[in-house]
């Protein structure tokens, strides 16, 4: 990562202001996209965590005889009773559902949460690297602009002096 950064640094100085802005734009978009993905992963992980809580508290034997409200739509509920406190149906993706014991379901969700956690960490590193590169680009771009501005002023001063 550090080496790639160094390579970039050398490249950056050779680029014109326009090219730099182009590169900056590209990096901006990349960072934006990655940050969005990061947030999506976070949301997904949170959903699985909610599932764990639901299985633990909503499908325990302590609530076996209590009635609960089942949402048919977001504003219509009907009373119901748990048919089983030992088994749940788990959505494992692409429209498939598997009947699992609550313990198995918890293991399944824990594995998912861990997997996502790993992905989040990896992505975090990538985002940080990109953000660093972006900062570098911005710094070089700022310096170039400054130099350009000074040159422009010097030129103006020269013409003013000549007149």
């Amino acid at each position: 990562m550090a080496e790639a950064g160094k390579g970039n640094q050398i490249n950056l100085d050779a680029l014109s202001v326009q090219q730099l802005s182009q590169v900056k734009k590209q990096f901006d978009e990349e960072v934006q996209h990655l940050t969005n993905s990061y947030q999506n992963l976070r949301v997904a992980q949170q959903k699985f965590k909610d599932c764990v809580t639901s299985v633990k508290e909503g499908v325990a034997s302590s609530v076996q005889d209590k009635t609960l409200l089942v949402p048919l739509t977001s504003s219509l509920y009907v009373p119901g009773k748990l048919a089983s406190t030992s088994h749940v149906l788990v959505d494992i993706g692409t429209g498939f559902y598997v009947e699992k014991t609550t313990d198995d379901a918890l293991t399944f969700y824990a594995a998912k949460i861990e997997e996502l956690g790993k992905n989040i960490k990896d992505l975090e590193n990538v985002v940080n690297g990109k953000a660093n590169n972006l900062r570098m680009i911005e710094e070089v771009l700022r310096q170039k602009m400054l130099v350009q501005q000074q040159q422009g002023q010097a030129q103006q001063g020269a013409t003013a002096a000549a007149a």
């Binding site: 149906l89 429209g95 498939f96 559902y97 598997v98 009947e99």
Partner: peptide, 12 residues
């Protein structure tokens, strides 16, 4: 012997 269901429209 696991039970697998497939979501078809609104039913499993």
């Amino acid at each position: 012997d696991a039970n697998i269901y497939k979501l078809v429209g609104p039913v499993l």
